[in-house]
Design a protein around this nucleic acid. Structure first.
Length: 131
DNA sequence: GCCGGAACAA
DNA sequence: TTGTTCCGGC
C-alpha cells in the first residue's frame, strides 16, 4: 500500500482532519519549527473560531479574518509585524510544493493536497508514482 | 486580492 | 529549506 492508499483508507468523508495526520511523526526535542500548514490545520482542527474555517469541498478552507489569522501566526512565530500579505506569500510558496493550491475565484480560499501532506509528514511511507 | 521575483534570515 | 520582507504588476 502506498501513501495515497493510506490516505484513502484512513480518510472517509469526515468533516475534520484526523489528529494523526497533522502531528509530526517525530518530535524534535526543543527547537521544533512550526510550519505554516501545520499551524493552519491546528486551528482548523480545533474549530478555532472566526479566523479560519473549512470550506465546502474536501480539504478546502476559507480565511474569514485574514489579519487576525496573520496576527495569530505572527504570535506563534515571534513575528509581531506579520500580516496577510506576507502570510499569503508563504501560502503561494506551497503551490509548487503541491501542499496547497488556490481555489480560483473564491476570495481567501485555498485547498490542501492531503496526500502530499502525508508524504511530508511520514517520509518513511512508500511513495506513489503520481501523487 | 492575488501573483511571483528577489534578497535575506534562521 | 521555510518562510519573512518588500514590491512591481495585473
Amino acid at each position: 500500500m502506498c501513501a495515497a492508499g493510506v490516505e484513502l483508507f484512513f480518510f472517509p468523508s469526515a468533516v475534520l482532519f484526523p489528529d494523526w495526520a497533522y502531528k509530526p511523526a517525530w518530535s524534535p526535542p526543543g527547537s521544533r519549527q512550526v510550519h505554516l500548514w501545520h499551524f493552519l490545520l491546528e486551528l482548523l482542527g480545533r474549530g478555532e473560531g472566526g479566523a479560519i474555517t473549512w470550506g465546502s469541498e474536501w480539504g478546502e478552507f476559507v480565511i474569514r479574518d485574514p489579519e487576525r489569522l496573520a496576527k495569530l501566526w505572527g504570535e506563534r512565530k515571534g513575528k509581531p509585524h506579520m500580516n496577510y500579505d506576507k502570510l499569503s506569500r508563504a501560502l503561494r510558496y506551497y503551490y509548487n510544493k503541491r501542499i496547497l493550491h488556490k481555489t480560483k475565484g473564491k476570495r481567501f480560499t485555498y485547498k490542501f493536497n492531503f496526500s502530499k501532506l502525508v508524504l511530508v509528514n511520514y517520509p518513511s511511507l512508500p511513495t506513489c508514482p503520481q501523487v
